[in-house]
């Protein structure tokens, strides 16, 4: 589960002029032909840096994303839902593993990535800094946050870096279960008693702003991304992904008789685009930078898990072990 919080950072891009022009031309020609880039190919430093950043943030999002939903495993309504939620949370952690391996092929060790997560240096998807207050929240997360993630992941699976594309294909297959599971939960609540309907409506109200934040700031304020589009690192703009999400899911929300807490939300019949009230982007920045309702808890829990499990990993170490980056 990952949106597009800050794939593009504010640091000045490394100018392509510093790269060997012949190698750069071959690299770009390969991408133009629709071929994938593989780990030992020559690649521009900026391509490598942005990909490590993006795949690593995606991996962290999967790991941290397990926490808000995991909260509800012990209190899921009924045995079948408990089993299903456990399977979903296990998937998210599994996706994190696949993504860390893909990022490692670019030259950053797994230990370094985990350290950057735990020190707060690396980011993860902002939505997981919000709490899942009720069972209704887990239903909304599993349906709409996963739907948003699928829009992003399907787009990125057509990108240029082979190991990331392969990991995403496997992830998207598994996420289709999440989407069905989440929709099933939302429909169950929305077609249930008045109390159940109220629970899912309140959850939707709470989650609408994080959902609108999910694909990142509007294109008008995003950093220049032309080169990353050219290199097929970024496969769709934040606004394009947000529009695709709204197109796919707002009608389904309305069909259930639920309301979206934005009176201005409508599709403009002339442009074919959704119009809406801009979510609070200052809040988005504030939460990403550490001041959200759950940031401290999320990282404290991960640090505790790493520290308490360390003796087990130490006990299993053998002198013959040697780190080699994954091959592909």
């Amino acid at each position: 589960m990952y949106g597009n919080l800050s794939v593009i950072d504010a640091q000045p891009n490394m100018p392509s002029e510093e790269e060997d022009p012949k190698l750069l031309a071959e690299f770009e020609a390969r991408i133009d032909r629709g071929e994938k880039i593989e780990p030992h190919d020559w690649m521009p430093r900026e391509y490598r840096r942005q990909l490590i950043r993006m795949i690593e943030q995606h991996a962290h999002s999967e790991i941290i994303g397990a926490l808000p939903e995991g909260t509800w495993i012990t209190r899921a309504p009924g045995f079948k839902r408990k089993m299903a939620l456990m399977a979903k949370v296990q998937d998210e952690v599994g996706h994190g593993q696949l993504l860390y391996s893909a990022a490692e092929t670019l030259g950053k060790s797994r230990e370094a990535m985990i350290n950057d997560l735990l020190s707060g240096k690396s980011k993860y998807s902002n939505v997981f800094n919000y709490p899942a207050l009720t069972w209704g929240d887990t239903a909304v997360i599993a349906w709409l946050i996963d739907a948003g993630a699928i829009v992003n992941q399907v787009a990125n699976s057509k990108g240029s870096y082979g190991p990331y594309c392969r990991a995403l294909e496997r992830i998207c297959q598994e996420e289709s279960f999440h989407l069905k599971y989440g929709y099933d939960n939302v429909v169950t609540l929305a077609t249930g008693t008045e109390t159940q309907r109220a629970m899912v409506q309140e959850a939707l109200n709470r989650w609408w702003q994080p959902i609108m934040h999910f694909h990142g700031p509007p294109d008008t304020v995003s950093v220049h991304t032309e080169k990353l589009v050219r290199w097929k690192v970024k496969m769709a703009t934040n606004d394009e992904m947000r529009q695709e999400f709204l197109d796919g899911y707002v009608p389904k929300i309305w069909e259930l008789g639920l309301t979206v807490p934005d009176p201005n939300l409508h599709k403009n019949p002339e442009t074919g685009l959704w119009e809406f009230t801009e979510p609070d982007w200052e809040e988005f920045k504030r939460v990403i930078n550490g001041d959200g309702p759950c940031n401290k808890e999320r990282l404290a829990v991960r640090r505790m898990a790493e520290e308490e499990g360390r003796w087990v990993r130490e006990a299993l170490k053998r002198p013959s072990q040697k780190y080699v980056a994954p091959l592909a």
Binding site: E111, N115, L118, A300, E306
Partner: peptide, 23 residues
């Protein structure tokens, strides 16, 4: 009972903490 400020006591993962890689 996780300390809120466990950031200050936490030590980074050493090399090979995650063991070696398999294909």
């Amino acid at each position: 009972e996780i300390p809120v400020d466990n950031e200050s006591t936490w030590t980074p993962l050493p090399d090979m903490d995650q063991h070696e890689t398999y294909e």
